[in-house]
Amino acid sequence: MFEARLISATILKKILDAIKDLLNEGTFDCSDSGIQLQAMDNSHVSLVSLTLRSDGFDKFRCDRNISMGMNLGSMAKILKCANNDDTVTIKAQDNADTVTFMFESPNHEKVSDYEMKLMNLDQEHLGIPETDYSCVVRMPSMEFARICRDLAQFSESMLICCTKEGVKFSASGDVGSANVKLAQTSSVDKEEEAVSIEMQEPVTLTFACRYLNAFTKASPLSGQVQLSMSADVPLVVEYRIQDLGHIRYYLAPKIED
């Protein structure tokens, strides 16, 4: 028996919004420790890694490890049926071929359940090596989303250059060129507004704007985003989900021919 309950359906809606542009389907691996999903997009350029810890749920029970392959479009249709302040419970029997989403209104007067067929998905798990990144940038997630949106107008790819002075995002194309420089903040009122840079070595890498923009769909999950970069390895874009876990996106850099 698997059962996981969240007090607010909003968080699950936001998580789905953060992954459904990149993935059509995904396998949710459930165990005692929580729920994990790791999946690459069809072109194998980016990877989504979602971790939701069991202690972040209002209730969590997983008697036996269970992998649930879900069509994310279908899951989105079901989650649309939940109000934001509904409690959501995800339930499945061991070896089941369906999963049930149950939504309860705050006053418990409305209870709805939606059963969805599970899918058998070919899982290709990737071993991601532990990496000491040369540069780790933390910045407001909305600022990062804004920069990705703005620079995508100029080119399909974006250069990210990180030095100890700051981080620079650049794009150039037929229209002209764009550069956005962010310096490390010296003092801020709110921690969420801070820009911080930990640098061992300066790094310059080029990435496809389309994927970066897809990652920024996770912005509603977290006030801050963390970019981890080293020369010639995939970028990691991480959004922490308060008290519950995180969503990490990996993106292969553009490489010289």
Binding site: S46, V233, A252, D257
Partner: peptide, 14 residues
Amino acid sequence: SQTQGRLDSFFKVL
């Protein structure tokens, strides 16, 4: 010029 890398060439398939 540059081409788009793929994750398979950086991470090992388990």
